[in-house]
Design a protein around this nucleic acid. Structure first.
Lengths: 199, 199
DNA sequence: ATCGCTCTCTACCATATGGTAGACAAGATG
DNA sequence: CATCTTGTCTACCATATGGTAGAGAGCGAT
């Protein structure tokens, strides 16, 4: 549902996503976002009645983007379950590399309980449910090693977001959060998944 | 370096750890922490000259605890590398289940760049370096499947913290963040690690 | 007793922030 | 022209927060 030319509302959404993701929601003031967009704070509050609703708007957009990316990856993959998993993981990593703020923001919000986090969870649930059902079906068909599909999905989700959203934290492991480093980590994760899920 | 009876300083540290971890650093005011401890805000500022230094104190304690737990686990394990990895993962999960705030806080701080995060990274680096060296040695000895030890360490760290610190986020995968659920997830992770690292 | 040290307290302040009130300009519509 | 809607702005406010200044209580040492 993106309009063709960037409206004020869209520009606010983009700037807020980046700033929230980069510095953390609480650390970013409406004034800073407004300055980044080049409008007055009141214009923000015109489009989004409160900071909370702005955050919700940002998250709705981010979740929608994530859903689109994953669905495109699924459609473009072959029938082989390991290939599909591969494609989805790569798809999730791609925007995370290009725009680390997005997944980082999702993760920050999910960390604390509350209505905003609950709403986000609701938006991502269909995606998770489909992955869940898919894994179960493939395991039943003997094309993946049997395991609890919910646990596998949760595990993969935790790992992917853990890597993609907090590359700075991984420095403690002597690893550098460059784009090349992220790709190597992604490939290692894929190797892990193959080793653990191959029938 | 813990004293035998809980001093005011220690009580402040405990309360701050829990509150920071539970609600996020920015969302917790010094007044709230003081109220929790049962002292005046000034007493906090007497022991820790600023909120930033309080945060650093909390992190130093948390990092030290983590180091102790992991080292104890390593000492108590057998020589088999998979058993050792198993023991370490279980050790990291244990405090995370009992006191989710701790690892969550570490992760939150690591998320944003800055001097506080850098200092924390420095405190955890020895641990990471030892894990790194250990994995490399075992791989060289043929007792683990060959892989980039830095990547394996980073991957495991990301997964463990991803699971342990953000159980709420994993609800999207139809999983419940109970203690039993955490244990099942931990066991699944261990199975993954065995499958991927067995020689 | 009194000095000095440690620890805790009661005010108080400067600042930043989210949010409100309302004016002003530009079209669209009658 | 008059009016209504949309979008942006300037000015202002109430509040919360991190931090400062300084006083006083308890207590061991001289």
């Amino acid at each position: 549902m993106t309009t063709s030319k960037p409206s004020t509302r869209d520009r606010i959404l983009v700037a807020a996503t980046d700033l929230f993701g980069l510095r953390g929601v609480d650390a970013v003031s409406l004034d800073q976002i407004a300055a980044e967009v080049g409008v007055a704070k009141q214009t923000l509050l015109y489009w989004f009645p409160s900071k909370d609703e702005l955050l919700q708007g940002v998250l709705a957009q981010a979740a929608a983007d994530l859903v689109l990316v994953v669905e495109a990856a699924v459609r473009s993959a072959t029938d082989d379950p390991l290939d599909r998993i591969d494609a989805v993981v790569r798809a999730v990593f791609r925007p995370a590399v290009r725009r680390p703020a997005l997944l980082g923001l999702i993760r920050e919000v999910s960390r604390l309980p509350g209505p905003v986090a609950a709403s986000l969870t609701d938006q991502l649930r269909p995606l998770a449910d489909r992955a869940h059902a898919y894994l179960r079906a493939e395991m039943d068909a003997g094309r993946l090693r049997r395991a609890d599909p919910g646990l596998v999905a949760a595990l993969s989700y935790a790992t992917v977001t853990g890597i993609a959203t907090e590359p700075e934290a991984l420095r403690v492991n002597g690893w550098e959060p460059t784009a090349a480093g992220l790709r190597r980590l992604r490939d290692e994760l894929l190797a892990f998944l193959r080793a653990a899920l191959a029938p």
